[in-house]
Design a protein around this nucleic acid. Structure first.
Lengths: 133, 133
DNA sequence: TTAATCTTGATTTATCCGATCGGGATTGTT
DNA sequence: AACAATCCCGATCGGATAAATCAAGATTAA
């Protein structure tokens, strides 16, 4: 269970891409700025997302990246699994293996929500903040 | 969120200590063997558990370690917090901070069970295994 | 042709996990 | 008093890897 900045970055980037689903490619620089990710780092990261099929790219001028699937069809687990799987290896022979298996499963369940849901929650939360300020 | 071997080791060690609660000190070598932890590594680890007050020690011959509190009164969270706190830092200013806060809380809740409970589950599980073999 | 993009591989720097070692301090036993 | 069993503690080390950067190449719209 190693949840790194790469996961945070990756999720933020995917959400940004989510807002532009089916609106044509957006370029890396824009995503990096919006999601507050170091440009050169996102370069690496987004290649992982591409390899996994979550994201597709268009090269050349007016190119950029876009989601390959609807935000409804993408779970946070899929995203993290593309970046770096979370679950740790479990020695089935160990007396506590059952506990760690449960733990893994629990985290997995929590992260089984869709990108779309997270986007909506995020928007909702932003609204609340606006009103509250 | 960085869940390392140290956490696994620490939990295993605490359970071992749990079985001998109020039965006098047991020495490090024994714990290390039972819980399958490298002896010299456990030496370091158990000092952390001591500093946190979860474990107390008796020096000299016939010395050893024992739980300071009843297994009922110790949560897995307390143990992990003594070893190395799990929750990661959250930039409250980030649009996704709410999500990561939820995540942290969720994991925290899962780990709020008592050492006693885990010991019982573990025993139960071992029994089942015995019958199943 | 050029400018805007993505693509790729190499490199860096710092951190730290996991583990080991050596010797020191304390205390029951004989 | 001597000894053996323990805990205590600081130092160190190899290897992994997280986070970030750089430089150059490939592709394509205009």
């Amino acid at each position: 269970m190693n949840l790194t900045k790469k996961h945070h970055y990756g999720l933020a980037a995917m959400i940004e891409l989510g807002w532009f689903y089916e609106k044509g490619p957006i370029h890396l620089r824009f995503i990096a700025e919006q999601a507050r990710i170091p440009h050169a780092f996102l370069e690496q990261l987004i290649l992982d997302l591409k390899k996994s099929g979550l994201v597709k790219s268009t090269r050349g001028a007016k190119g950029g990246y876009q989601l390959n699937l609807s935000p409804h069809g993408v779970s946070i687990n899929q995203i993290f699994s593309a970046i770096d799987p979370l679950g740790f290896e479990i020695d089935e022979d160990h007396p506590l293996s059952f506990f760690w298996t449960d733990f893994n499963q629990h985290v997995y369940d929590f992260l089984s929500l869709s990108l779309q849901t997270l986007m909506e929650d995020s928007k909702q939360r932003a609204k609340v903040l606006t009103y509250t300020i």
